[in-house]
Amino acid sequence: MMSKKHFIQLAAIIARTEDMAERKRLCEEVGTVCAHVNKEFRWSTWRSAYGVSQ
């Protein structure tokens, strides 16, 4: 199971992506995986970490 520590590590990688379109794509794709493995996953928190809107 993925923990908060894992989500933070993934977030750090995505946040370093300079191209906003690519950052949004990564945010959505990685977020989908995270949501499937953690029932407490919150899309709003995940997206706001990158300044990405839905």
Results as ranks from 00 to 15, higher is better:
Met20Phe: 06
Lys39His: 12
Leu10Phe: 07
His36Tyr: 10
Glu18Gly: 01
Cys34His: 02
Arg23Trp: 05
Ala11Arg: 05
Ala15Trp: 01
Cys27Phe: 05
Phe7Gly: 02
Cys34Phe: 06
Lys4Phe: 03
Ala11Tyr: 01
Ala11Gln: 10
Tyr50Leu: 12
Tyr50Phe: 15
Ala15Gly: 00
Cys34Val: 15
Ser53Ile: 13
Ser48Glu: 15
Ile13Asp: 01
Lys5Ile: 11
Val52Tyr: 07
Ser48Ala: 14
Lys24Gln: 11
Asp19Ala: 05
Glu40Gly: 10
Tyr50Cys: 07
His6Asn: 07
His6Glu: 10
Glu28Val: 14
Ala35Val: 06
Trp43Glu: 13
Ser44Trp: 08
Ile8Phe: 02
Leu10Asn: 01
Thr17Asp: 02
Arg47Phe: 15
Arg47Pro: 00
Ala49Pro: 00
Gly31Met: 11
Met1Cys: 02
Thr17Ile: 14
Glu28His: 05
Gly31Thr: 08
Ser48Thr: 15
Ala35Gln: 14
Gly51Val: 12
Ile14Gly: 01
Ala21Val: 10
Lys5Gln: 08
Ser3Trp: 02
Val33Ile: 15
Ser3Glu: 10
Ile13Val: 13
Phe41Ser: 08
Ala12Gln: 09
Cys34Met: 13
Arg25Lys: 11
Lys5Leu: 08
Thr45His: 11
Ala12Val: 04
Glu18Ser: 05
Val30Glu: 06
Glu18Thr: 07
Thr32Gln: 10
Ala11Met: 05
Leu26Ala: 05
Glu18Asn: 03
Leu10Ala: 05
Ser48Asn: 14
His36Gly: 14
Ala12Ile: 05
Glu40Phe: 10
Lys24Leu: 05
Gln54Glu: 15
Met2Arg: 04
Glu22Val: 11
Arg23Met: 08
Ala11Gly: 04
Arg47Asp: 09
Ala35Trp: 06
Leu26Lys: 11
Leu10Glu: 07
Cys34Asn: 03
Val52Ala: 06
Arg42Ser: 15
Met2Gln: 02
Ser44Ala: 15
Ala35Lys: 11
Arg42Pro: 01
Lys39Cys: 07
Ala49Lys: 12
Leu26Glu: 10
Thr45Ile: 15
Ile8Met: 04
Arg47Met: 15
Leu26Val: 04
Glu22Asp: 05
Ala11His: 01
Gly31Cys: 07
Lys4Cys: 00
Ala12Asn: 09
His36Arg: 14
Ala11Phe: 01
Trp43Arg: 14
Lys4Leu: 10
Val33Gly: 01
Ile8Leu: 08
Thr45Gly: 08
Ser53His: 09
Glu22Gly: 00
Ala15Gln: 09
Thr32Asp: 11
Glu18Pro: 00
Trp46His: 09
Glu28Met: 13
Ala15Arg: 09
Met1Lys: 05
Val37Ile: 13
Glu28Phe: 11
Lys39Val: 14
Ile13Glu: 03
